[in-house]
């Protein structure tokens, strides 16, 4: 029964930047464990805003208000400490952002350093190897682990950032257009990687790329002007969209 219960659930989630305008309007959706769910929609539809709310990134900007509930295993994260939430919900950003002053090893272990958790040498080595292997970066960087992460190519940097997020063993991994700054080969690498990763972590990904959503996700959300227009099986949504707006977007008449 455990696998039936959703791991992450948006319940009438609203996000507003100003009192008048809502960027996300009453979104309700349940995300299944160990799946990849894609959030699609034209620019400015609120998809990144919704994703960032699930990591409490809005706490950084006092003018942003989030209402409703976001439940992680049934617990409302909006009333939890951001530090605890972010340890369980990892995030990968659009532009690869390895910490420029840290080596590859330190980048992978950054989450532990930032949480003040001390690891033994053996634990450190084990974590670095496990995480880099799970993003298929180990073979490429195992001899240069002490070099700065910024020396890597864009695709490698993004995989390093994914490894860094995985090192904290999160339940959910949020990805905000993780491949939009990468070339097609690096993109293919990361897409393949995500499909491997869904065995251990639930992935919620914002993407502009419909092909990408179709290739990797089992479920898709379509958002338009802050509303969740349609949410369902990716294959069904692409073949027989229920809403006229989804249809317009998928056929390229909108966005």
């Amino acid at each position: 029964m455990e696998s039936v219960k959703p791991i992450l659930e948006f319940n009438k989630t609203c996000v507003s930047y100003t009192k008048q305008t809502m960027a996300v309007k009453y979104v309700s959706a349940a995300i299944d464990r160990n799946t990849i769910t894609a959030i699609m929609g034209p620019s400015g539809c609120g998809k990144s805003t919704l994703l960032r709310a699930a990591n409490l990134m809005h706490e950084l900007y006092p003018n942003i208000r989030v209402d409703g509930e976001i439940l992680l295993n049934g617990e409302n994260i909006l009333s939890m400490e951001p530090v605890d939430v972010r340890r369980r919900i990892g995030m990968v950003f659009q532009r690869p952002a390895p910490f420029p002053t840290m080596s590859i090893t330190d980048n992978v272990l950054a989450g532990y350093a930032l949480n003040g958790i001390r690891l033994s040498k053996a634990e450190r080595e084990e974590t670095v190897e496990r995480c880099l292997k799970s993003v298929a970066l180990w073979d490429e960087v195992k001899d240069v682990l002490n070099k700065k992460g910024t020396f890597l190519s864009g695709g490698q940097q993004q995989r390093l950032c994914i490894a860094r997020a995985l090192a904290m063993k999160p339940d959910v991994l949020l990805m905000d257009e993780p491949t939009s700054a990468l070339d097609p080969i690096a993109t293919a690498h990361i897409e393949k990687l995500m499909q491997e990763l869904q065995k251990e972590v639930t992935i919620l990904i914002v993407t502009h790329n419909m092909g990408q959503a179709m290739r990797i996700s089992s479920k898709s959300m379509f958002m338009y002007l802050g509303e969740l227009v349609e949410y369902g099986d990716t294959a069904t949504m692409f073949s027989t969209p229920k809403d006229e707006r989804t249809k317009a977007y998928l056929t390229g008449r909108m966005g």
Partner: peptide, 22 residues
């Protein structure tokens, strides 16, 4: 870039540690 700070916070660091280490 704001992404550095956000990436640090996204890993669960508190603001003081992110400031100090990142």
């Amino acid at each position: 870039p704001a992404s550095l700070k956000e990436a640090g916070l996204a890993l669960g660091g508190n603001r003081a540690r992110v400031m100090l280490k990142v």
